[in-house]
Design a protein around this nucleic acid. Structure first.
Lengths: 206, 206
DNA sequence: GCTCTTACGCTACGGCCCGTAGCGTAACTC
DNA sequence: GAGTTACGCTACGGGCCGTAGCGTAAGAGC
């Protein structure tokens, strides 16, 4: 994940240091939260010199994005649960359990906030986190269309727009429930939310 | 908005300083963004000593919450547009235009992120911003029920749950669209989103 | 008026963190 | 072995934090 300039000569970068730094970053997020996390502290936790961090990441923002992105890689998947309703409910609970973690809870919105003034950071978040989530929407929709639960979009651009809309609705609602309302996304909430979304998808134009 | 201990004697706090500080905070948010905003800079912009800021606000978090909350106070309202669909679409566009501002864009998610580790800050955000938004949901639902567009909930707790759900869906989707996907909430998007939500509300159980 | 009380502006300070430079050493390629 | 890059360590200027201390300003109560 760090910037790897693909060098062919000289001493290679320690992959163990990469792992130690990212682990230390997550641990520091849990203990200190985004606001009080410092580069020096992460370096000390990782047993690594501060300069080693700066050789790989430009700063706190980029480091934290990569640290939490790894969690998304590990815990996001979309097994076929047999119906659109079950698929949506499953992904909602899965995403929620990621957001319940103290690391992601404190870090995700913080880096998004920073990304409003940093295009490179926005791209990094997009490719490391957002696009992975969005692919689940595409998979789920394709399955639902195969099952006949949803109509196929005739227009290609309309299909993309719908996917974006569904993604913002699902991810946005879970994030808002967890971080702003600060209420748990339990199975009851997931059921009610899924009923709303699936009802809206199957009721109007697909 | 600042902490006003209701003193009856001594020199009163300058209300003009309050206004200057909040104005300076918003200006600094526009120019510098949340991450680079500093208390000293705000004080200098406001033409006020740094100690004056700290007499009113505990720190950057609280100051920024009050500064952006004032924007919500000014720009959030829900005129009766004649139908549930029109009301939802109207509030979506209104909330979106607030989030398009650079001040709110950079500040809102940042303070929410901080609030995950600060209960007092969470309460402040809730009372200053979130509750005001949520009241729009209650108003809109009451109107829709009067019009006969939505059934009345028999259960009181169920009614509250539904309102919370709708609020998280609407606010969450708009925030996610604006900040994470970084795409504009234009009338086309608002139409599609409103169709989804209203369809879901009227299709399943109200 | 005068006194009491609180707010204000200003200065100065210790402390923390940033991000980088410089150096000697370690690891890997050719 | 020679060349190249990564590493750990130390040190540094710089910025910002949040507070203390002081003299002054602006009200309330008598």
């Amino acid at each position: 994940m760090p910037s790897t300039p693909l060098r062919r000569t000289g001493r290679p970068r320690s992959t163990e240091a990469d792992r130690a730094i990212l682990d230390a970053t997550r641990a520091a997020l849990v203990e200190l939260g985004w606001g009080k996390l410092t580069m020096g502290d992460v370096a000390a936790r990782a047993g690594v010199a501060k300069t080693t961090l700066y050789r790989r990441w430009a700063g706190k923002n980029e480091l934290v994005v990569d640290a939490v992105a790894a969690l998304f890689d590990e815990h996001l998947e979309l097994p076929d649960r047999g119906s659109l309703r079950a698929d949506v409910e499953g992904v909602v609970l899965q995403f929620a359990s990621l957001l319940e973690r103290p690391e992601t809870k404190t870090a995700l919105m913080a880096v998004v906030a920073e990304s409003t003034r940093d295009d490179a950071l926005r791209d990094r978040i997009r490719s490391a986190i957002v696009d992975r989530q969005k692919s689940l929407v595409l998979i789920g929709r394709a399955r639902a269309q195969t099952r006949g639960e949803l109509p196929r979009e005739p227009d290609e651009t309309q299909a993309a727009r719908n996917a974006d809309l569904i993604f913002d609705v699902i991810a946005g609602a879970v994030v808002h429930r967890t971080l702003v309302s600060a209420e748990p996304v339990d199975e009851e909430w997931a059921r009610g939310f899924t009923a709303l979304v699936v009802g809206g998808l199957t009721a109007g134009a697909g």
